[in-house]
Design a protein around this nucleic acid. Sequence first.
DNA 1: GCGACAG
DNA 2: ATCTTGTCGC
Length: 262
Amino acid sequence: MPRGRTLDTTMTNVRIPAGWPVTEEEARAVQEELRGRVVVDEPGPPPGTGRVTGVDVAYDDKLGVVAAAAVVLDAATLAVVAEATAVGEVSFPYVPGLLAFREVPTVLAALDALDRDPGLVVCDGYGLAHPRRFGLASHLGVLTGLPTIGVAKNPFTFTYQEPGIPRGSASPLLAGTEVVGRAVRTKAGVKPVFVSVGHRVGLDNACAHTLALAPEHRLPESTRRADALCRRALKEAVDRTGAHPTGDREGTLPTVAPPPGR
DNA sequence: GCGACAG
DNA sequence: ATCTTGTCGC
């Protein structure tokens, strides 16, 4: 029984929820219905206090497997205080604008498996910066009630003026003339990250958190830790149950518990 | 109609 | 996201 890490690390298996959208039309209808529940009039937790949790997912599309990780950091020190992972079956294809339907079930399971309150949740993707103003971070926020923000690596379909070179420079992220987020330079001279509000957090606070979480690298430590953990979890899940060169190659997804007998 | 498009 | 070796740099 390998024990590599020091922290309590939970691992959960996930099935696609009954009634989960199957078509793009159904998924868009769900977004339209949930978008009204996003709360945007709260400033959110002050940066540098309490806890911040990074979430991310990794895929093996060939096997239809997805792994999610949630890593809880102490906001003041950025020390890891808790982690959890979940593995499941891919619940939706990648469609721009419908990313949440691919990630939400497994991410929710990882968050549920944590042994303490996540605090602010930082997503790899967008919140209000979305075609229907309901990206992954907002979706996750509405479903959990937790404050969330989105920090994306690409501008998606939005436009922005290049921020100044120094770390901390920023410029509006625009959908036409509407401000949907902010391009934030977390590292001098390096491509900015794209921050948007998810749920129960203001944009200024979301950007302040992002900068506080990225003192050294372009991406927030929360995202970096979650990214590394979900990749590890995916690899371990595939190594453990996936296709062996000569072994049985029955559809043995990690979600299917090994039959007791037989 | 065609291409672009978070991860 | 993922496919992929070595290589330059702190």
